[in-house]
Design a protein around this nucleic acid. Sequence first.
DNA 1: GGCGTGATAGCAAGCGCTTTCTATCTGATA
DNA 2: TATCAGATAGAAAGCGCTTGCTATCACGCC
Lengths: 348, 348
Amino acid sequence: MTVTLADVAARAQVSPATVSRVLNGNYPVAASTRERVLKAVDELDYVLNGPASALAAATSDLVGILVNDIADPFFGIMAGAIQSEIGGPGGRAGGERLAVVCNTGGSPERELTYLTLLQRQRAAAVVLTGGAVEDAPHKAAVAAKLRRLGEAGTRVVLCGRPPAPDTGAIALTFDNRGGGRELTEHLIGLGHRRLGYIAGPEERTTTRHRLEGHRAALAAHGIAEDPRWTVHGRYDRRSGYEATLELLRRDPSLTAVVAANDSVALGACAALREAGLRIPADVSVAGFDDLPFSIDAVPALTTVRLPLAEAGARAGRIAMGREEAPPGGIAVVRGELMVRGSCGRPRG
Amino acid sequence: MTVTLADVAARAQVSPATVSRVLNGNYPVAASTRERVLKAVDELDYVLNGPASALAAATSDLVGILVNDIADPFFGIMAGAIQSEIGGPGGRAGGERLAVVCNTGGSPERELTYLTLLQRQRAAAVVLTGGAVEDAPHKAAVAAKLRRLGEAGTRVVLCGRPPAPDTGAIALTFDNRGGGRELTEHLIGLGHRRLGYIAGPEERTTTRHRLEGHRAALAAHGIAEDPRWTVHGRYDRRSGYEATLELLRRDPSLTAVVAANDSVALGACAALREAGLRIPADVSVAGFDDLPFSIDAVPALTTVRLPLAEAGARAGRIAMGREEAPPGGIAVVRGELMVRGSCGRPRG
DNA sequence: GGCGTGATAGCAAGCGCTTTCTATCTGATA
DNA sequence: TATCAGATAGAAAGCGCTTGCTATCACGCC
């Protein structure tokens, strides 16, 4: 069968305890002994039994990263940054940790199940990324779960998600509201007064905050809102395409379209182009996030850059206890308006 | 402390064995007893101890997915598809499994370390995605690892990676060579004779195969190759941008640029545009993969579509033992040429 | 010269669960 | 009514590792 600690011990002529100590390096072992053990490990090609080790030591080297959509670079970039700081193999962290990313697909149930699974594995830390679902019961369930995880010694960090009060979780929150406001103010500054808005899925914090920012900007400039100007959709290109068609149908006189994120904005561009409208001469388009491809749109997308990699890295360090938590356990990460070619003065 | 099986047993007035059986559902338990147990579980908010369970049962519900770059949608899409089939929470699979994706960053050492970590966790299955590094010692080391994993009962599936002979691993390989050839033949068919090629990193199977396909097409049409026409880079946009500048410097008379993938192609478009060249009037550009954003490039990218989601889903099912392995343990997944606006007849 | 001391190594008791084997009980059969 | 099969439940032996405590040994000191 598989090689066990005892086999190694026998081969090295020491006790299992000694082998364990050599492997963990947390107890003095004579150099000569250590060498003998290491040699035996090597010869037998021994690999520690993770579950057994975790059981005995009551700790695990698993770190979970929850994302809404792993195929979306928004999450991929954050997850990559988090993982690189978690150490994982090759990271600068001493203890090797298995950083694993779990794809919830945006489903509350999956999120909860993954949390349970991670709790079951006695994960060392958990990082939840991206917006949360706002359904009250679900919110409460997640909060309860996070609290339990924290109590069990799992470090919980939220990255790009609003704080979860009374759970002990550290939060690095994106200023979606501020970013949304700044973006729309930019458009208003250019002279736009009839702005369509393609929002993300309802009942999501990110969706709501960006939309609130947009509306705050409108209100601040005395622009009355027309309910026809807002359409909800998913966070993908296709949704942007369809929503734009819908907006155009509802009010062909719109001079700008603000999208929930860059992918949606790309879809919007495609729809506008097909409708024979020029960007930005006829209609301006704005995105959000500044994902890598946004600069390659033609014209390049005006958007709000979110420092995804930086925030992820920081979240990773906090999860590893290598960086202090922000005061109050909450930090707001601001976006930066990237003015590019897709927005211009309105026609006429 | 934390609630254990024994606590639940005490509360439900049954033996620990019975609780275990209720939880695993693999042994008859009277309905009334089961209910009592479930009630106790609920009341105590009990969560199984994963490591202990894995140790005792000598199995784990962990499935590892290795990717080269989690921030790249190429991998994100595959990983998402794999994960959705693995079941994870909400999947159609019965037993809940924790599908975890591990980001190797393309580093051979990390790949190896992650494999060891997964071996340590006694993973139920491992899926390796994307191209492999061709360095001989590393290749051998990975092969040895895969063999051991297989011997230990871990199912090993390669998705979008060449077969690993004598390891027992199932391989779903992308026909990068064929795709590369088809793409270049399309360009040749349009009349191009001076084609620049932006290859991926050296020593990678994907890079080599795509390049080989390209060269095969040239050779088949009697086009002599100029070494100046090939530049190596990374698989990202920036690399495409820089490589294109380099190509232009080396030979301004090129009429087409074939890129290692879509991101690189986007970078190439940006560089060409900045150089005042029109696409495709002055220079045609082709990508590879057909990632979602490719259709939004202007003009839309001519590229080779790889069925990433389908392949990933299949790999996931095979890893779960829910689909039979292809005959011989190897299946070739073909790409499909997507002809769009970025390629046209050469000028003049 | 007996002994405190520091440095190593081993013993053995779990960690919390699974599972084999055995015990018990019920109802049906002869 | 004695017996037996079938259905449940429990006892207990690990799974492979970690770690508190004890044992040993070599010195050097009073």
